[in-house]
């Protein structure tokens, strides 16, 4: 099994972000979480602990807020980050089947990352490409007019790509 991890092991210093929020209170929590996720790709335990220290908020509270919103994740992104659109047009065109195919193929729930670090999955409400429905986006690249079969083929190709590198 490959041991590639999606994100580089070295994390940029959180302190730079925290420094931009001196004397911040709980109202700064969400913008802070967003900036940290932007930087790291996810919210690590360490990051949540340090944000808590900075804002004088318990870790449970921060986790509670962060899990309320779809946008936050707690595992590093995979090398291939798959966003499945579940907007109205995609739904009408069968995106549920596409999502289920990805979930089953990878054994992965939305918000999670495979153990080998290859794939991560996210469900998004609408990525603004309704004409291509049902659509998914992998590392910024769109794949249009999908079916469960097509999406499985895409995943296989990605796996092959990695194997060929080794």
């Amino acid at each position: 099994m490959s041991t590639i991890t999606g994100q580089a092991a070295v994390q940029p210093d959180l302190q730079d972000i925290l420094d931009r929020y001196p004397d911040a209170g709980r109202d700064a929590l969400i913008p802070l979480l967003q900036e940290v996720q932007e930087m790291h790709g996810y919210l690590s335990r360490e990051a949540i602990a340090r944000i808590g220290e900075h804002l004088h908020l318990p870790a449970s509270k921060i986790y509670g807020v962060a899990t309320f919103y779809n946008q936050f994740r707690f595992l590093p992104l995979g090398r291939y980050h798959i966003q499945v659109c579940r907007g109205t047009a995609c739904h009408v065109k069968g995106s549920l089947g596409v999502l289920d195919a990805v979930r089953q193929d990878l054994g992965l729930e939305p918000g999670k990352t495979t153990r080998d670090g290859l794939f991560s999955l996210e469900v998004v409400a609408c990525i603004g490409a309704c004409g291509l429905a049902p659509v998914i986006c992998i590392n910024g690249e769109f794949h249009a007019n999908l079916t469960p079969q097509k999406v499985r083929r895409i995943l296989d190709e990605l796996r092959e790509e990695v194997e060929n590198e080794e």
């Binding site: 949540i48 318990p58 870790a59 449970s60 986790y63 509670g64 899990t67 309320f68």
Partner: peptide, 21 residues
Amino acid sequence: AVAAIDFVGRGSKTMVGTAFS
């Protein structure tokens, strides 16, 4: 003044849990 637990998640999936469940 411990705050070991809070509401985690949203909607019908909400539960009371610890940090990182």
